[in-house]
Design a protein around this nucleic acid. Structure first.
Lengths: 117, 117, 117, 117
DNA sequence: GTGGTCTAGACCACG
DNA sequence: GTGGTCTAGACCACA
């Protein structure tokens, strides 16, 4: 569900934080849902535990996660993106795939349009 | 038109390559149009000439640019994204802004939908 | 093992890339074997480190090398030329030497036959 | 029959000289045969006449060509490579093609074997 | 003037 | 120690 590209210049903890944040905001992880433990996720991603811990901690600071020693990490409510935005994103993604754009190219188009708005 | 963020983990030459590629694919720079010279752009961005040269060279390898000594760099045709894709991206960007998402959050939503398609 | 001819019109980084690629493809360097460090080789060849770095980087892009920080550069498997090809090349080289052809002339004969095949 | 790659670091006149020499040595052009005029060849290759003139002149200096104002350029005898060498080259080229090597890779194998002989 | 390369030295992140 | 990048200045070949 999450992948870490070690050849990327973006450090691993940022990749993890970013992708977890995406999952929460898009509703793929619902409010209250429990995340895998730090050690669990670290093992799956072949990454040091501290790396995952840092990602979790920054997500907590951003208000997306609730950390507690006893119950682990849970998704805090109120951060999912409205349905219409998700739909627009899905439509765009499907269209871009039809034209056989790469993900990077597709993101680039959004970035460019964002700047021109 | 192009900006380099020194605090980003993404190295400057990649930022430049990426943004120039976006401009070309979105049609902001038309086929055949001349790009600023390496030294010109380097000066504007406060960056060493070699940094811009590398970005140009990789764009040439990707088929987006045509480089030739003495005549400068020109945009190669056939790489602009279809109008409907641009429209979908613009619609999405506008909607995301209305919900006061940040650019990074908006890109995250697209990324997440892309993976789920 | 590798030489750089400064009087050649072929830039040094291409000469290095080419010769290293030859060594790998002909099996002179086995899969998994470690290459000299960038700075090491640069020192031996009396060349700037960036020059060797570029050669290594292009060999990585071609799939011949595996680069990783701190552990150095290693030969990736699966790119050595079949034994019978090596033998045919060796036979040809020996014959050409017997007729006292120069290397350039010998390569020219191969090039010409290649085009006529 | 001859091609000039303008993106190569090898200057055009060397490319032409090299390829013409190959044609003569491999017997594709027989002794006494007349070469195209300088202007003719220059026009075909989209190259300045002086470029071809320099290639011809160096081939004359190497003894492969005979230039005279009246009769144009003719191939001098005694420079074709022995049949067995041509055969070995053709065999090697065919084998390399079967393994789907590129020309550059094939030449690299010969180069490497040459050095190790 | 253009792109293309090289140099020498520097800093970073990683292990 | 490793690879990866940046800088500043230099030279070349081309048009």
């Amino acid at each position: 569900m999450i992948t870490v590209d070690e050849s990327s210049p973006v450090p691993p903890f940022e990749q993890i934080r970013e992708q977890l944040g995406d999952l929460i905001r898009t509703g793929a992880m619902e409010a209250g849902q429990r995340l895998p433990s730090i050690r669990q996720l670290a093992g799956d991603l072949r990454v040091a535990a501290g790396t995952v811990a840092r990602a979790y901690s920054e997500l907590e600071a951003a208000g997306l996660l609730e950390l507690s020693r006893a119950t682990g990490a849970r998704v805090r409510p109120g951060h999912d993106v409205p349905e219409n935005i998700r739909r627009a994103a899905a439509d765009f993604a499907a269209g871009a795939r039809d034209q056989s754009l790469t993900l990077e190219e597709a993101l680039g188009v959004v970035r460019a349009q964002w700047r021109q708005t």
